[in-house]
């Protein structure tokens, strides 16, 4: 019979995404049999992270300080605020090297059928952040899914009332995209949202 402490470890490992009973068992045996040192490091790292990581007071992303490095950087343009759904989305925006402003991470999205509304998203905190007197333009970079679109609509309506300029990421044919291989939904929307070419 499996000792109960081992059983407990297997159960605990199953909380990880993609880890079923089989992989959890393999991980537990591996840690106890071959890598006790690694297991101790894991414990310490988990403890550290749990104690040290919280949400940045300004951009709401994970941070070890009250205000993260990006938010306190003087090189950033504080008049631009980009709103994204998750920290991963923020990293993607950063990789573009095209954006020099600041961020706000919602840590979710509005999803009417899942009972996920503005209250659950903590939009009060966002409004406080936007109305700091420095932000002039908000760039809505929520996903182009129905939920992302619903979130963007909420935010744009709220912010427009406060006299803040609101823009939304453009959507359409990808860079280097050949029409032949673009999915028809994207192409259809790119046509509907076509722009006049300015000289």
């Amino acid at each position: 019979m499996t000792p109960s402490a081992l059983e407990g470890l297997i159960q605990a490992l199953r909380c990880l995404p993609g880890v079923g009973p089989k992989s959890a068992q393999r991980m537990a045996y591996h840690l106890l049999q071959h890598d006790r040192k690694g297991a101790l490091q894991l414990v310490a790292a988990l403890n550290n992270a749990l104690e040290g990581v919280r949400h940045c007071q300004r951009c709401n992303t994970f941070s070890e300080q009250d205000i993260c490095d990006r938010c306190s950087s003087p090189k950033r343009d504080a008049s631009l605020l980009c709103i994204v759904e998750t920290p991963v989305d923020m990293n993607m925006m950063e990789q573009t090297l095209a954006y020099q402003g600041l961020y706000y991470v919602l840590m979710g999205r509005v999803s009417p059928l899942d009972g996920m509304g503005p209250r659950q998203l903590g939009l009060e905190k966002l409004m406080e952040r936007v109305l700091d007197g420095v932000v002039k333009e908000v760039v809505l970079a929520t996903n182009y899914t129905n939920e992302g679109e619903a979130t963007a609509h909420y935010l744009s309506t709220l912010l427009a009332e406060k006299g803040i300029r609101v823009s939304r990421l453009a959507r359409g044919v990808p860079v280097g995209g050949e029409l032949e291989f673009v999915d028809p939904g994207t192409l259809a929307q790119a046509f509907r949202e076509r722009r006049t070419v300015d000289e």
Partner: peptide, 19 residues
């Protein structure tokens, strides 16, 4: 397979769609 012909819902009509 995507059929097309339906513009994406945006704004309040999107919330009507959810309803």
């Amino acid at each position: 397979e995507w059929q097309g012909g339906q513009p994406l819902l945006m704004g309040l009509p999107l919330f009507c769609g959810y309803y």
